[in-house]
């Protein structure tokens, strides 16, 4: 019988005929299939499941299961939001102890890591960065990583900073070599035409000059891009790389989220376009928001 060779049935078939049997015991393969479908929106349920039996806990804590779980659910759920002051506002039941980082400033979070600036000590900051204005943390894999399970792997930290003479500096740390790169500098008063952002780059908003800094640690190069609006916009400013590789820029003004994209015009010159404003009051139930969210 070919079927018997292809699949090994570990349960007694005779039990099917007994109407009074207790609920069937599922074979391990199928427990795996069920547990992998537990919703990531409810992390406490995964913990509850791990206390059902030791074999379930073994399944759930197995690294093969963890990678399959990530693969299965693809887009990881938002477990919480870090406020700039290092307080995590949970959006699910997940709130492990010591998750809040008091007296810290959140510079960036991405690829399963958070970059915090410790306001009590600046020892990790390389000497030539007199004043850190922004930073980014990212997976060290340039390509070929889906960033679903790389948070334990090698990473890089890029920092940009300014000195009192108006010079901007940037450098990158590699966890693999445990060293900071030589710094790349730029005079912010130099008239540099905006470059179209592509491939490997990091973009920051510089808090002092209200300009976007483009830092490519690979070249390395540092350059300046003007923001789409001249006025100071320091509330909720996010500079991001869009899915198509272009540059996105958002900020909040008068309870509206303003979104800009940089696109090439007919002559191939990059231009800020696609302006869109989203009225947040209409979108978010402000009255129902967590008090923690409203305090900032």
């Amino acid at each position: 019988m070919p079927l018997e060779e292809e699949r090994h049935c570990r349960r007694s078939c005779g039990s099917n005929n007994n109407p009074y049997r207790s609920p069937p015991e599922l074979v391990d393969d199928n427990i795996d299939e069920i547990l992998v479908r537990l919703s990531p929106e409810d992390p406490a349920l995964l913990v509850h499941a791990s206390t059902v039996s030791k074999s379930w806990r073994n399944t759930l804590t197995n690294c093969t299961f963890a990678s399959r779980y990530r693969e299965f659910h693809r887009t990881p759920p938002v477990l919480g939001i870090f406020r700039r002051d290092g307080i995590l506002i949970p959006t699910t039941s997940f709130l492990p102890p010591a998750v809040h980082h008091f007296n810290c400033h959140v510079l960036d979070y991405r690829h399963g890591r958070v970059l915090l600036e410790n306001l009590d000590c600046g020892e990790i900051v390389p000497d030539h960065l007199a004043l850190v204005t922004n930073g980014a943390v990212l997976c060290a894999m340039d390509t070929g990583c889906d960033h679903l399970n790389c948070h334990d792997g090698p990473f890089r930290v890029a920092l940009v900073g300014a000195d009192p003479e108006g010079q901007l500096h940037a450098c990158v740390y590699s966890s693999e070599t445990d060293e900071w790169s030589p710094h790349t500098s730029l005079d912010v008063n130099d008239d540099i035409p905006p470059e179209f952002l592509a491939n490997a780059y990091l973009a920051f908003i510089d808090e002092f000059y209200n300009k976007i800094l483009r830092y490519d640690p690979m070249e390395p190069s540092l350059s300046v891009i003007e923001t789409p609006v001249k006025e100071t916009c320091d509330d909720g400013v996010i500079v991001m790389r869009e899915e198509d590789g272009g540059l996105g820029f958002t900020f909040i003004k008068a309870n509206s989220l303003h979104l800009w994209s940089m696109r090439k015009d007919r002559n191939g010159k990059p231009q800020w376009t696609n302006f869109r404003a989203i009225e947040l009051e209409k979108l978010l139930p402000v009255g129902k928001m967590s008090p923690q969210m409203r305090t900032e």
Partner: peptide
């Protein structure tokens, strides 16, 4: 399997054991 995983929602470990006939 999706249906069974949905059945586990809101259940305590004891209730899950009962559904799956699992000994603690």
């Amino acid at each position: 399997c999706h249906k069974i995983s949905e059945m586990m929602k809101g259940k305590s470990p004891d209730q899950i054991r009962e559904v799956f006939n699992i000994k603690n």
